[in-house]
Amino acid sequence: MSDLKKEIDDVSGVDTTGHEWDGIKELNTPMPRWWVYTFIVTCIWAFIYQFLYPSWPLITDYYEGYFAETNRDRLNDELDNVAQQRSVTLDKIRSMDLETIRNDNALNTFALAGGKAAFGDNCAPCHGTGAAGFTGYPNLNDDDWLWGGTLEDIYTTISFGIRSTHEETRVNDMPAFLRDELLTKSEIEDVVTYVQSLSDSTITATESGRILFADNCALCHGEDGKGLREFGAPNLTDAITLYVTDRDSMIDIVSNSRKGVMPTWSGRLDEATIKSLALYIHSLGGGE
């Protein structure tokens, strides 16, 4: 430092740069040292960094860097890791029977979490995110099951579907009594009155309605109208209906029938996922 070159500004006591414009001299106020040092360190860091990690674009490729490591690779590794860890548990779920899984606390927790996620992805569009269903799409929370509510029953329904393309599909066929000219309009009215009387004591059914029910409906729905699960025939005496409950709709159903479809999931979903789904649906409060 030579004092000859230094010129101190009288007012501020700070050096000037020696630059002068129209009698105004520029004060020499350098960047703070810590800032300068940090800047130098970042420059050195950047220079080294380019050799360590992917940096320069090439014609068809890019320079990989010494470590040849990217966040994408790291993510893939981590995902592989997770899959690896999960595969042990998933293998167990695949090989064990449903009841055993349910009694194993750790496995059950794992299956329920997986089932919930799979339900949101695959089942929620028809059955709703809370599995409460819609008209024509059953509520899976309640205790009324068309094809049975045990773990095995639910598992079978999910695997093969209802009226699906699978050869082992659950299937039934309620005749369209009016369209197929099996019953007349007034006979259908009588049957519907009889069915309504099963759950509503204020309605009195006619004798002809009772006979028509016994002849045409009891085969599947049972003598007492309580349904038969082997045929997937609904219980007509309880509070739950898959379709609407007013008289006109009931007449329409008997006249034209309803044939809802549930797809088969075996082949589309992994065995472990289907089992997890069965366990999840069973856990919603209606499982038998």
Binding site: G130, A132, N139, D143, D144, N235, D238, A239, G285, G286
Partner: peptide, 18 residues
């Protein structure tokens, strides 16, 4: 309290909340 479904009707007509 469960919010989805808000409530469930059972076969007996009872209302159930989770």
């Amino acid at each position: 309290r469960d919010r989805n479904p808000l409530f469930v009707q059972l076969a007996s007509g009872d209302i159930r909340n989770g």
